[in-house]
Design a binder for these strands. Structure first.
Lengths: 187, 187
DNA sequence: TGACACATGTAATCAGTTACATGATTGC
DNA sequence: GCAATCATGTAACTGATTACATGTGTCA
């Protein structure tokens, strides 16, 4: 239920074609809601049929030609009511936590390398977010309209910070575990 | 690719029937990999056909009768190699962050209540995790085999801690934003 | 015998991923 | 004309969700 609303948000910020949306989903909005161009094209079709968006008259609607979409009043209304609605947080579903749990049963062979790899990836992402924060939200200058966008970015920063801390801790635990397995001949 | 491994892990800890697994997925393993009984039954069928698990001979395999499964050596091997394998972290995909971003475009009407509701839910979950930690992992007593399980639980605690902090912050931002919208007649 | 909890399953649908197909534009 | 790139789209598949169907055991 989120992808159509992600697209409406992106189109309100700037009318775009499908591929332009796909590229913007690789940055900005994609940081907390990723989507491929196939998903986006399918969803644009549905949104148009539902009367929430329309093709800009200027754009030629032929195959291979750019087709720009804009949000109609019904689309803005739908987004507004989605923002106000209720939607329970999804239960966590993280393969890495699952793998650590599995490792407690079958042993930690090969796991440390993978944790280290994830740690590097999360550090990298965190650095990227911090760079964006410095660039787009200089201290004491948040305008009213930027305050929410900044809060969203801080969400990303908080999550990456959590993962780097947790992975550092987990690496220690796995290291000690592996030592124990070697010591008792379980490795 | 994670559900079958979640099931293998659960079955290694204790041979079980489908419904028993479903119940255990409501606690413990379900805290970081949820699944419904329909998913579990389907997956048990696939795992049995793949020769990774088998029905315990004791159990009567009739409809309406309990069917207990246990992991075969091939299943343990599959799980071991999955633990050692590589699997990139999925990009974040969080509807709540998306809603906050949408609110930056169409206004925050109704959003504060929803953030407060989520905050309450996360606080509740955090309290549950802390209770489990106190009960199952008393200080300075972690055995070697418990160290990994404890790390997993700390993952859950860290995530819930992050959300409660972030939501508290976000509520402030939304409050100020709403005040601004009222002041300038945008609400 | 009727209600209810336990237990296993099927069917339909939806969301997301992967692989591929096709047309248009530009530069050589 | 050909290759490379931009752009739109189709098809097949996998994973997850929702709703429903069916059988068994127990107890009032």
């Amino acid at each position: 239920m989120s992808l159509p609303h992600a697209i409406l948000t992106a189109l309100l910020e700037k009318p775009s074609s499908g591929l332009e949306l796909a590229r913007r989903f690789d940055k900005s909005i994609g940081y907390f809601w990723s989507a491929t161009h196939q998903q986006i094209y399918r969803e644009l079709g549905k949104l148009e049929q539902a009367g929430l968006i329309r093709v800009l008259p200027a754009a030629a609607p032929a195959r291979g030609q750019k087709k720009e979409y804009e949000v109609l009043p019904a689309g803005r209304a739908a987004l507004t009511s989605w923002v106000a609605g209720a939607d329970d947080p999804r239960p966590v579903r993280d393969p890495l936590l699952l793998r650590l749990r599995a490792a407690a049963v079958v042993g930690t062979a090969g796991l440390a390398e993978e944790l280290q790899r994830h740690l590097d990836l999360h550090r990298c992402q965190l650095a990227e977010y911090r760079a964006i924060e410095e660039r787009d939200f200089p201290p004491e200058r948040d305008s009213e309209e930027d305050r929410l966008r900044h809060a969203v970015l801080r969400g990303g920063i908080g999550l990456e910070t959590f993962w780097t801390q947790w992975l550092t801790e987990a690496l220690t635990a796995v290291g000690e575990q592996a030592a124990g397995e070697r010591g008792s001949g379980r490795g």
